[in-house]
């Protein structure tokens, strides 16, 4: 335990403290010019300590101080009703629902593509290069068009955002699964042959179990990507609801504190999602009798 404290927790804490200190210094120096301007107009000459406090308590600072963000985050998360449109929980929930929908579709699609690629040579030769090329395309650029065009034909709400998440999340899963389904060594494949196993049986009893660790590793990447997709997908919807909408609203009215707490909320959702996928992966692997990695 002391090893863990010395090797991990202590350094991480020190670096985090350093970042926090730098943040305070940054918020002082970035807010100072505006505050000086305000004081000069008001004809005040505050002492240095008063001045520092003032830079940290502006309603619309250039860079809000950490405690301002924390306070705003706390108020909007715990003190508001969950159904209120000012509640971060409400916005995070909306983003989360389209993230999860897109992630689910993307994962299924990725697995299906991978199964096809592993079993059909023609698909392997023709589709695989395009899957890789598809990711060099900055697809998020498509997001506003997908949303607006689908809205023009009457499809709004969850589905368009989920589609963007799907596009971003199918790729890691497809690539990871192809790798995973091909990971059994020749020896094991030969063994299945000596058992006279059909392709179907080889798939269920050897290839699929072998691919599970790869699947969960790539699902971690995919879930983070689909959250990004959902957030960006919310930008062009006219800022109705969701973390992306909250960001856009904040940028319209220069409410930096709101923007930062929306970012914090997004980060927490991301961390929770990745952690959840990791835990499910561990449970599944343990139940399959896998070794602790």
């Amino acid at each position: 335990m002391t090893d863990r404290l010395r090797d991990k927790i202590w350094p991480v804490t020190v670096i985090l403290m350093g970042i926090l200190a730098a943040w305070y210094v940054g918020s002082y120096s970035m807010n100072a010019p505006f505050q000086r301007d305000l004081d000069r107009r008001a004809g005040e000459t505050p002492s240095f300590s008063e001045f520092v406090v003032k830079t940290m308590s502006q309603p619309k600072p250039t860079l809000p101080a950490p405690h301002q963000v924390a306070q705003n985050f706390f108020e909007n998360t715990f003190l508001r009703k969950v159904t209120s449109s000012r509640s971060l929980v409400y916005h995070a929930g909306i983003t989360l629902s389209s993230t999860l929908a897109g992630f689910a579709i993307g994962t299924v699609l990725g697995i299906l593509i991978a199964v096809g690629i592993v079993h059909v040579t023609a698909l392997d030769r023709s589709l695989m290069p395009w899957i890789i090329t598809s990711q060099t395309i900055p697809i998020l650029a498509l997001a506003p068009m997908i949303i607006v065009v689908l809205a023009a034909v009457g499809i709004t709400g969850l589905l368009p955002k989920a589609l963007i998440s799907t596009y971003l999340s199918f790729f890691p899963v497809a690539v990871g699964m192809v790798k995973g389904l091909r990971s059994p060594d020749v020896l094991h494949l030969d063994l299945m042959r000596t058992y006279n196993a059909s392709r179907w049986e080889t798939f269920w009893k050897l290839r699929l179990p072998a691919s599970v660790p790869f699947l969960f590793a790539s699902m971690k990447v995919a879930v983070a990507a689909s959250l990004v997709g959902a957030i960006v997908g919310e930008l062009p919807t006219g800022a109705i609801a969701g973390i992306g909408a909250k960001l856009l609203n904040g940028s319209y009215y220069s409410q930096t504190i709101d923007m930062f707490s929306a970012l914090v909320a997004g980060s927490i959702v991301a961390a929770l999602l990745v952690a959840a996928v990791g835990i499910v992966g561990k449970i599944v692997e343990r139940n399959m009798g896998g070794r602790a990695a």
Binding site: L140, K220, A224, L227, V228, I231, V232, I243, G244, L247, L248, G250, S251, M259, A262, L263, G266, S267, A270, A271, V274
Partner: peptide, 9 residues
């Protein structure tokens, strides 16, 4: 793993 794109605004 965070949605860094959010810092854009």
């Amino acid at each position: 793993a965070l949605p860094i794109i959010g810092v854009a605004p």
